[in-house]
């Protein structure tokens, strides 16, 4: 029984991180699906979302507002606004001018932007780890008190539910709304979409904005869950989320979700049963294995090579 509880605990841990990775991975996958570009600066957008959320929370605390739902909602909105704006600006400044050229050029531009943003926040806010207040505390405990107890914290539940809501909203948006339809059209064939009168530039900007908003949500959630933020943590998270996106099939939104969960669970299981030190090796190893046998990822669309 104890072993089973332990297994479930690691599973819950994994699904929690996985959900957060999924939120960030969506940003990567949407951008790639539409313009075929890896947005290396996305991890930094996530980090900026976390910082903005913390600024908002601290600001509200100084103003004396203590009601939890208000704090969370205001922080979320502030983080989403700043992140989305940043995402939009990054696209206009660094990616649009180099769109369409040899694929290395936007890549270098993206990496440069990533470095720029990391150091921007570093210079503005200092490089130390800053604590995030634990606004949502407590949770459920399963199992008897004298042996291993599985805990499911409210924070973890919040992360699951928020991710689920975001995913559902996004799917509805993509499948039902006009802009969503336009997004799908642009990702299928950008030239044709242009001919049909869709303003592709606006759609591309919209993609960046949506991805950034989701990353901001992840920033707030993970900041609260883990407990501290610093200017460099966006990069690692971004790399993992990117791995998750590729794992699930880059360009596919359900793929990003699946990839995120798989990555989270594999990390957690490796950490729990083998050793925490090699969990990243397992993640990347998994990625390489999947790409060897299914080069477009799990749910990716097979690339047709036109000669």
């Amino acid at each position: 029984m104890q072993d089973l509880l332990y297994f479930f605990q690691q599973l819950i841990n994994g699904l929690t991180i996985g959900s957060a990775y999924a939120l960030i991975a969506i940003g990567y996958t949407m951008v790639y699906g539409i313009i075929g570009m890896i947005n290396f600066a996305h991890g930094e957008i996530y980090m900026i979302g976390a910082y903005t959320a913390l600024i908002a929370i601290t600001g509200l605390a100084t103003l004396g507002i203590a009601w939890l739902p208000v704090i969370l909602i205001v922080a979320l909105i502030c983080a989403m606004i700043v992140s989305s704006t940043m995402g939009w600006a990054v696209e206009r400044v660094a990616y649009r001018p180099v769109r369409g050229r040899h694929r290395l050029i936007p890549l270098i531009s993206a990496i440069g932007m990533s470095i720029f943003l990391q150091n921007y926040v570093h210079l503005a806010q200092g490089s130390r780890n800053i604590g995030f207040p634990a606004l949502i505390d407590g949770g459920f405990q399963f199992g008897s008190a004298d042996s291993f107890q599985m805990s499911l914290s409210y924070m973890q539940i919040t992360i699951f539910i928020t991710t689920l809501i975001c995913m559902t909203l996004l799917s509805l948006f993509i499948s039902r709304s006009r802009t969503g339809r336009a997004c799908r059209a642009v990702s299928q064939d950008i030239g044709m979409a242009n001919l049909l009168g869709i303003d592709t530039n606006r759609i591309i900007s919209a993609t960046f904005v949506i991805g950034a908003a989701l990353a901001a949500v992840a920033g707030l959630l993970l900041g609260m869950y883990y407990g501290s933020i610093d200017p460099l943590f966006g990069f690692i998270a971004g790399l993992k989320a990117f791995t998750a996106a590729v794992l699930g099939g880059i360009g596919s939104i359900p793929g990003a979700m699946l990839g995120g969960l798989i990555l989270g669970v594999s990390e957690s299981m490796t950490s729990g049963y083998l050793s925490g030190e090699y969990k990243d090796v397992v993640s990347f190893g998994l990625l390489i294995l999947i790409l060897l046998f299914k080069p477009t990822g799990l749910l990716g669309k097979p690339e047709v090579e036109k000669i």
Binding site: Y6, Q9, T16, S228, S268, G272, G276, K279
Partner: peptide
């Protein structure tokens, strides 16, 4: 940042 597995252990 994530020590949930360690804590579980």
């Amino acid at each position: 940042k994530d020590f949930s597995s360690l804590v579980t252990k």
